[in-house]
Computed example of a mutant assay.
Amino acid sequence: MKVLVTGGAGFIGSHIVDQLLENGNQPIVLDNLSTGEETHLKDGIPFYRMNVQDEAIDWVFREEKPDVVIHQAAQSQVTQSVENPMMDAQTNILGTIRLLEACRCHGVKKIIYASSAAVYGNPEYLPIDEDHPISPLSPYGISKLTPETYIKVYAELYGLSYTILRYANVYGIRQVAHGEGAVISIFIDRLLRNQPLTIFGDGEQTRDYIYVEDIARANIAALEHGDGETLNLGTGVSTSLNDLVKVMGEIYGGKVEVKHALERSGDIRFSCFCVDRAKTVLGWSPCTELEEGLRWTMEYCRKKMDGVCL
Rank of each mutant, 00 (worst) to 15 (best):
Asp67Met: 10
Glu101Cys: 02
Val82Leu: 05
Lys42Ile: 06
Asp67Arg: 09
Cys103Ser: 09
Ser76Cys: 10
Pro46Gln: 10
Phe47Arg: 03
Val69Gln: 09
Tyr48Cys: 00
Leu99Asn: 10
Thr35Pro: 03
Pro46Gly: 07
Val108Asp: 02
Glu63Ser: 06
Thr96Phe: 12
Ala118Gly: 02
His106Asn: 13
Glu101Tyr: 07
Lys65His: 06
Leu100Pro: 12
Lys65Gln: 11
Leu33Tyr: 12
Met87His: 12
Asp67Glu: 03
Gly44Gln: 08
Val52Arg: 10
Ser116Val: 07
Ala117Glu: 14
Val82Lys: 01
Asp88Glu: 13
Ile70Cys: 08
Leu94Arg: 04
Tyr48Arg: 07
Gln90Leu: 15
Arg49Tyr: 03
Asn92Met: 01
Val119Trp: 09
Ile57Asp: 00
His40Leu: 12
Ser116Ala: 08
Phe61Leu: 03
Val119Asp: 05
Val119Asn: 10
Thr39Asp: 06
Ala89Met: 09
Ala118Glu: 15
Lys65Asn: 05
Lys110Leu: 05
Gln53Leu: 02
Tyr120Trp: 13
Pro85Gly: 03
Asp88Val: 12
Gly44Phe: 07
Val68Gly: 10
Ala74Arg: 04
Ile45Ala: 08
Ala74Gly: 02
Lys109Met: 01
Ala74Gln: 04
Glu83Arg: 02
Val29Leu: 15
Thr79Ala: 12
Ala114Thr: 15
Thr96Asp: 05
Asn122Ser: 11
Glu101Asn: 14
Gln90Thr: 07
Ile45Gln: 01
Ser34Tyr: 09
Glu38His: 00
Asn84Phe: 10
Ile45Phe: 00
Gly44Pro: 06
Gln75Ser: 08
Cys103Val: 12
Ala102Glu: 04
Ile70His: 09
Pro85Asn: 02
Gln77Met: 05
Gln72His: 02
Cys103Asn: 10
Leu99Tyr: 13
Val82Arg: 04
Leu99Trp: 08
Gln90His: 14
Asn92Val: 04
Ile97Pro: 00
His106Val: 11
Arg49Pro: 03
Ser34Asp: 12
Gly44Val: 11
Lys110Pro: 09
Leu100Phe: 06
Ile45Asp: 00
Ala89Pro: 00
Leu99Pro: 05
Val52Ile: 14
Glu64Asn: 03
Gly36Pro: 08
His40Lys: 08
Gly44Ala: 05
Val82Asp: 14
Val60Gly: 01
Val119Gly: 07
Gln75Thr: 02
Asp58Thr: 00
Gly36Leu: 06
Ser76Arg: 06
Lys42Phe: 15
Val108Gln: 11
Asp54Tyr: 10
Asp88Gln: 02
Met87Phe: 14
Gln75Trp: 11
Leu41Gly: 04
Glu64Asp: 01
Asn51Ser: 15
Gln77Asn: 11
Val78Gly: 12
Lys42Ala: 14
Asp54Thr: 13
Thr91Ser: 08
Val78Phe: 05
Val29Ala: 09
Ala74Glu: 09
Ile57Pro: 00
Val60Asp: 01
Gln72Tyr: 05
Ile111Leu: 15
Asn32Arg: 05
Phe47Lys: 03
Leu99Ile: 03
Met50Arg: 04
Ala73Lys: 05
Trp59Glu: 14
Asp43Asn: 11
Gly44Ser: 07
Ala114Phe: 06
Asn122Phe: 14
Arg98Asn: 13
Asp43Lys: 15
Met86Ile: 06
Thr96Ser: 12
Val78His: 14
Asp58Glu: 13
Phe47Ser: 02
His71Val: 12
Arg49Asn: 10
Phe47Thr: 07
Ala114His: 06
Cys103Ala: 10
Pro85Leu: 09
Val52Gly: 02
Pro66Ala: 15
Leu94Asp: 01
Tyr113Gly: 09
